[in-house]
Design a protein around this nucleic acid. Structure first.
Lengths: 201, 201, 201, 201
DNA sequence: TATGAATGAGTATTCATTCAT
DNA sequence: CATGAATGAATACTCATTCAT
């Protein structure tokens, strides 16, 4: 692929990322993608088989970037607690930085088995990255714990996407909160005794 | 509204619930909804303004049912820990019982502000129900905690939806796991010491 | 099917007959068919699955009409020679009457197996009708003879389709010529002896 | 035109002949033609103005070859009957030898006046070749007779194209049958008297 | 109320053709 | 001469919605 080709390939992915991201799969027109990429409609089809293929490619690039960055950051960080904080920060800031374009990324074509399979794979890889961290601490149910942590983070991210007044500082607070809650549990954030809590749960 | 009308209204909602639930908004046809409801295509429009309106109504009924049931269960339960367990059980079993039809419910029309607003409202009401419970324990950041708990539960529910071998027993385990992790934190599930954990976090 | 439906069905077939007939399959647009039939584009699809289906239906109606008329005329006619003349007249006048619309009917979608099969069936039925006549005369190779006769007629019809000055009288002459040539052979139309003709052939 | 050019010109014609022949005009892509000819897409346009021009050239080469071969064979043959047999054999074997590639040759672009004109010209030249033979026998309606003979042959050729089990021997039989029927007429193939045949027709 | 025939706006995709290299 | 990346016109088909009955 020539450098011009690569440039066009990237331009299409970028355009599609923004449009799929804000309008979703069904409400994004291939002609819009072409226009935003600064090329002709037919040209899109020289690089991607069809609309679903383009959506897959956009998703793939995004997910791979997410995981690669995460792994780099985890390698560079130390203690267990530090790593859990890194995960939280990565998750929240990743979306914070892309809030313009990922608002509605979760609007995907509904019955595309390939996409469903890929998303499952992504989720699994993400989870395994977290599991690996947890195992260092000797967690007994690392997969469930990893899923729980990811779920927490994913929900905490929603406000970031939809609340335009969210500041970087706010994201930092949320990051610390998430790691702390996950590690210490609700009990650590409460004044009242939890005397009725079954011990060891 | 006559009783015949109510019956038809309900039949349409039921049909739409199943179809939207398994195929998503865009891949569900109004004609299919009518057919499954046992009425004529035009009749759907006597009860719902248009496809989005129908989707809204389906969503609303589902969310309201979810919240009402939750509130009933919370009133009937005692301690803080008990209530947190009730929330987890409700969230997971709700989807467990509807796994046939909610698989893809999260595929919604992408740019409908009314729907977005409603979902935000639902999330807020759900969160407030959890907040109310947490406040009994004197939580300091009850909203963030509530969101985190809901996020955990939502991710833990995904396997239930997509893994057909999931048994009722498995759901029970997950329920206990979720409540326990949320209350006691990761530290309680780990063998290794978390000596590097900043105290009080 | 209501009478209005039948009317529309027929109107579409008529419109398609004329357009396919003069422009061929590929150069006829469904929107033109609809317009000429006086209905909306979408309505065509209520009556015919797609463009190929419509083409098939048009072809079928035309071929069936051709054969039915032929059979009626054959029943009403007497001697072997008379029947052969009836066949010739039917073939030539059928196209003479439709010269406006069948000029290019032989431009069909190229790779439609169903259509190919149907045309083979039609040709076979046509041939069998001729074979039946020939068998009354004790022909020894009736199928090849039938095909030959049909081939003659089909070529003799071409001028009718493409020559606008062709009169009904001309068609009559051609009819007589065809029957006579087929029955008596070239030898009957020649002054010179055909002494070198293998005897008995 | 250099020899390399001639080679490319021929390669394109060969490729187009096979593809148009088996897929028809509309379902053959210029890119396929180029690929099969072993050249780039754009190069085709250095040799042929456009797709229709290429189709014309392919048709022309085929028709000219058909006529030239026929004329050569006719010069080499003797009696009237012999010449008629030569015509039949030529027509049938020509397609027999090309059955792979001419199955669908008759699927031409529908509204190309130049092509229509050329085909008329070809038909006329073919007819004149036959007429010339028939005039040696003093035929009174040589053109109609020629057309009829060609029509017969054309129909008799169809089975050859579509029936893969057709042997060379079968083609021979058909050749003899055609010439014999044309010369002697149906009456020669029948047991029954044709007493009602108008004398001299 | 209920129907369902009719509508027509809306869009992904193809492919002949061009032209800068 | 040769290339092949880029173009964009052109069209079948779908399906939400309407409205005469």
């Amino acid at each position: 692929m020539s450098s011009a080709s690569i440039h066009k390939h990237t331009a299409i992915l970028d355009a599609a990322y923004e449009l799929f991201g804000s309008g979703g799969f069904y409400e994004t027109k291939m002609s819009e993608v072409a226009e935003r990429a600064g090329i002709a409609k037919g040209t899109v089809y020289l690089y991607f088989k069809n609309k679903e293929d383009l959506f897959m490619a956009v998703t793939r690039r995004d997910c791979e970037g997410f995981l690669q960055q995460l792994e780099g950051k985890l390698r560079a960080s130390g203690s267990l607690t530090g790593k859990l904080s890194v995960i939280a920060a990565h998750h929240l800031f990743y979306y914070y930085e892309r809030k313009q374009h990922t608002k509605l990324f979760f609007r995907a074509p509904n019955n595309n088995p390939e996409l469903v399979a890929y998303m499952a794979l992504f989720m699994d890889e993400y989870m395994q990255a977290v599991v690996k961290v947890l195992l260092e601490g000797g967690a007994s149910e690392p997969e469930l714990m990893a899923k729980s942590y990811i779920g927490m983070l994913d929900r905490l991210k929603m406000d970031i996407l939809f609340d335009p007044s969210f500041s970087e500082e706010d994201v930092h607070k949320r990051t610390k909160f998430a790691a702390s809650l996950f590690i210490g549990g609700a009990v650590a954030n409460m004044n009242a005794s939890l005397g009725d809590l079954p011990a060891g749960q």
